[in-house]
Design a protein around this nucleic acid. Structure first.
Lengths: 343, 343
DNA sequence: CTGTTAGCGCCTTCAG
DNA sequence: CTGAAGGCGCTAACAG
């Protein structure tokens, strides 16, 4: 069995010109057939299609893009492809892209503003029709020339700064309210708050909401129970010890993002305390844990679809003012948040 | 605050020609500066850089690609971005791509051969330098013309057919052997096998290995304990009932992929049997379950890095014969596989 | 060191 | 309905 095509190895790919020659028609006729333009006689169409098949011709998108000025490409810039939230986003965008004949480029930032900038600049050089991103840097003004030139930018999870863009945000405050209300209703007052680094927009919104919710319940926030940092295994281990191994330990933990939650669970596995836990962000297998994870779930799918909708609306009128959509979140009760205060 | 760049809205992007005019140099000099070619005087370099900055010039990759014949693009075609295994792959490829100035296009197949073909054809029209994929269709011969033209293809998890490509495969047989040996050592003989659809390469390799391993232990395989199908919540529920609600129920389950495992865990949560479970493929939070999940773990990172290595080696000599690398797997013992037979 | 010329593969424009 | 010419933005191959 030969593994090479009809042309043998090391072959250049055939061009439209060669197809035209083989079919005995003009270049433009091939172009018409390839692009399914009307006004080509059935005979010529057949001839061209035969030539295309014989030569294994595939159009060169680079040339097409250059000529048309549209690339049929969507750029997606997110923290990490492994995060279920962003995975959902990627999936939804890919689905839409395929249905519309586009292609998705994915770039990862790992929450590093510099990487975000590098990746975005790399991407915009390829002139994507749209850019969907979860911004981390303070400003995205380096995208301004491309926004001016018609690139549609939609952000998800966090807003952009320095450019005109649409944004899809979760109802962070509402979610934290639900979580705190739920824990207070179980009798908790010493509720530790474990959140992400404050340079992240959602982390800021959530911790502010935590303080507001506590105030609403007339509970003084014990600052020793509030920890904001990047979620690492060691870091969260230390944090857990800090909020639990003390004279008046926390009786409940509000973990403000899914990576923190995973680490809290890991840390709790090595302890004997029975502490209530509510997570902002659900985990993939949250229902399989025992107790099940009580979590404020963001509907990644809804957010992704909203982002795509905003993008499709923005595409035809790229210079319209930016819109912001808040997507509701939902508290899912499974057990971990219903543990009563132990002391 | 104005959200538009210096050029105002609706602007065309500046071209190299305009930069040249503004800097008072030839087109090619700008090209040299942009590409950091040597032999440009510091004065001209400075002039050009100034012009670039003033005009917010960014090179047009489409034109570059067309001219150079290289696109600096890696295409990745996988089942699902949410699958941790493929997420690791995507992450590794993206990391490498960034370090080498390339960009990653991602396409999803959802295990549908037709979608695989559509996505791949869409991608190859963009002339990626390399294609990394987990093939599902019977043949990938539609890629042959592009392989002939120098596109490097590396497959992961499964081999390709009909083209010359490298492959990175897990040691499926070895992993199943380890799992069965482990269960037999605990005293199990009625070991149910729940696997994926046999059209998937890994599913075939694994079920064959299961039969071989059972034979090695002189255990007759009870065909009623072997179930091969797509892992859906309902399907696995029925399957569980079939292998457990019977006169001689299975005392152990070997679940042959992570999606099946997740559904088995869901199904078991609603039952009272204490059945041993070993999973081929680990789960993200397998250590947090109780009991912890005993699993044969594939090192997605190692496989991904191997794929990238093969790709970089193939890039300069695209017509070399295909290589296949088997990556070892490792049994991780956490509790679920150490439950003894109950009857 | 710098500039000119040609053309990558395709689509747009306009003429037959 | 079909075709010929021109150029999208850039770089390779030469000239100076």
């Amino acid at each position: 069995m030969s593994f090479t095509g009809v042309n043998g190895a090391g072959q250049r790919r055939p061009t439209m010109k060669e197809v035209a020659a083989r079919a005995g028609v003009a270049l433009k006729t091939v172009s018409r057939v390839v692009n399914e333009e009307p006004n080509v006689s059935p005979e010529l169409t057949a001839k061209v299609q035969a030539a295309i098949k014989e030569l294994n011709y595939t159009p060169n998108e680079s040339a097409r893009m250059l000529r048309r000025g549209k690339t049929g490409t969507i750029a997606v810039v997110i923290r990490d492809i492994g995060d279920p939230f962003f995975a959902s986003l990627g999936r939804a965008v890919e689905l839409w892209a395929r249905s519309s004949g586009s292609v998705v480029m994915i770039g990862l930032t790992d929450e590093d503003p510099e990487r975000e900038r590098d990746v975005c600049l790399e991407f915009v050089a390829r002139r994507p029709d749209a850019l969907i991103m979860a911004p981390i840097g303070e400003t995205q003004d380096y995208l301004a020339p491309h926004v001016d030139a018609g690139m549609a930018v939609v952000t998800i999870d966090r807003p952009a700064h320095g450019i005109e863009a649409d944004a899809v945000l979760a109802d962070n405050a509402g979610g934290i309210d639900q979580a705190i209300d739920h824990l207070v209703r179980q009798g908790h007052r010493r509720i530790a708050y474990l959140g992400d680094d404050e340079r992240i927009f959602t982390a800021r919104e959530r911790v502010v909401a935590y303080r507001a919710a506590m105030a609403r319940h007339r509970i003084d926030v014990d600052e020793d129970l509030v920890h904001l940092s990047e979620p690492t295994t060691e870091g969260i281990g230390i944090t857990l010890s800090a909020v639990l191994d003390r004279p008046e330990p926390a009786t409940a933990i509000l973990s403000a993002n899914n990576m923190t939650t995973a680490e809290v669970l890991r840390g709790m596995a090595g302890r004997r305390d029975r502490v209530a836990l509510v997570s902002f962000d659900d985990l993939a297998l949250g229902d399989l844990l025992s107790p099940g994870l009580t979590a404020v779930a963001q509907s990644a799918d809804v957010m992704a679809r909203t982002a795509i909708q905003l993008m499709t609306e923005r595409l035809p009128e790229p210079h319209r003012p930016g819109r912001t959509v808040r997507v509701p979140v939902k508290l899912t009760i499974r057990g971990s948040g219903e543990i009563p205060p132990s002391s």
